[in-house]
Design a protein around this nucleic acid. Structure first.
Lengths: 255, 255
DNA sequence: GGTAATTTGTTCGTATGTATG
DNA sequence: CCATACATACGAACAAATTAC
């Protein structure tokens, strides 16, 4: 007792050491998005490792969304700004391998969307409200293309834009990213439920009306009302597609 | 019009094709956790690519948490069960590069924890309640080690075990993972706030009391009460460490 | 327990397609 | 169009680690 306390060591691969150093440089801000890494041969020299080791490290960094390298680019790998695609990817993996049910995703989305509007009611600016209104206009336009066939993809994009504006107005970047991610995951799972719905034009109209109600509540600064509207809309959108037990659980969150 | 519609192609690297195929096999369940991939030289033959390409693909798959390879293992890379470490990693990156504030994390945690107990009040079994009670006993034990120095790490572990039991009782795996992740991220950020607190023993006692109140509410099936207790506890725990505006935003979520 | 066989970790050389100037 | 430098990819070789006999 009292002697030096040695800690167990694990053999750490050379490429890991390279990853750690570059990762630290990026996350600490020493390397900013848009900047370039040295070329692979240059990195070989700086790290005193072989070419393959450098390449494996770059692959890992690329998989983590921190850099991107293109063949022939004389400038070396590019440092990327943060993007939620990696988060999306791992959450999609979670959804697939641990078999997340539609009900679990709907619960998550209901809670986070309601929180986003609750926060947005406090902090929204006129710019935010204008963005939301513009998104709703796009939804209207997509719902009535004049060609008989509604533009489902455009409607979905406008819907995403609306919720992104709400989340940004709420001021919580974590909620913003997570709602975006779970929306994408659900879209990937239920695919084109809306596109196949025979009454899709009616659904779109109700969606537009709902979003306009939310905007009105946000403009009035009535967060609880906006949250209630959002929860109810989520429930109405998904309850019909859920088994009884999951529907009951979702209803429990309606409050 | 009417002719074949060609789609734009992007040059896809050889290692990406390898990644795609193995990833599909894992996520579809064709390869289950614990199973082994063929050796690298075997994969060379099966995919008709060089060894470096195989290795880069394995590095990417390892970065995504799907497989793990050890030097010298004659059985080849091991297929791993899902683990939230990758999700934790990317969320930690999000927290660092986009500079998530403590307030944003607290908002997220307050909402998800409250949702977890609300769901748990409906679905909790006696086993779940017993697990929670056991975790609280561990918290008590860590708070009174008899050596004068409270076991802060043990207290934190027991706290995590409690919330994990709650989340499992709630039946939403996505919320379970996300609460776990955000808890880990916050622990990494505020580090040892509790450990340095001069009145940490009093804080621990209040924590134990709070968790016991939550268990009582869950046993009674009173979800809204449990949710209120949880929100209030989160607020009390973090409000003192937040600037005024973030404190106000957190208070807005209290209910 | 020790030894041999196999596998991964790492380096190096070479060839090829590509982007920049 | 050409020259240069780069990333991509292949394959051989050696070292280190693990398993099996």
């Amino acid at each position: 007792m009292g002697g030096p306390r040695f800690e167990p060591v694990r053999a750490v691969r050379a490429y890991e050491r390279v990853v750690e150093q570059i990762e630290e440089a990026v996350e600490s801000g020493a390397l900013t998005p848009g900047e370039r890494l040295p070329s692979e041969r240059e990195l070989m020299v700086q790290f005193s490792v072989g070419r393959s080791t450098v390449r494996e490290a770059l692959r890992v960094l690329q998989a983590r969304g921190l850099v991107r390298s293109r063949p022939g680019d004389p400038n070396g790998a590019e440092v990327l700004p943060f993007s939620p695609v990696v988060l999306k990817k791992s959450m999609t993996t979670l959804a697939r391998v641990s078999e997340l049910s539609l009900g679990e995703l709907a619960q998550f989305r209901m809670v986070l969307d309601a929180t986003a509007v609750l926060l947005a009611a406090r902090l929204r600016t006129e710019e935010h409200l204008a963005e939301m209104a513009a998104a709703v206009e796009d939804m209207k336009a997509a719902g009535a293309t004049g060609f008989g066939a509604a533009d489902v993809a455009g409607f979905g994009a406008a819907d995403t834009a609306f919720h992104d504006a709400v989340a940004r107005a709420g001021g919580n970047k974590l909620i913003q990213v997570c709602t975006d991610v779970v929306r994408a995951v659900m879209a990937g799972l239920v695919e084109d439920r809306l596109a196949r719905a025979p009454d899709r034009e009616a659904l779109m109209r109700r969606g537009v009306a709902h979003h306009e109600d939310v905007i009105a509540a946000l403009r009035a600064g009535d967060g609880p009302l906006a949250a209630r509207l959002t929860r109810q809309w989520t429930y109405d959108s998904y309850a019909g597609h859920l088994p009884a037990d999951e529907r009951a659980a979702l209803r429990a969150l309606l409050e």
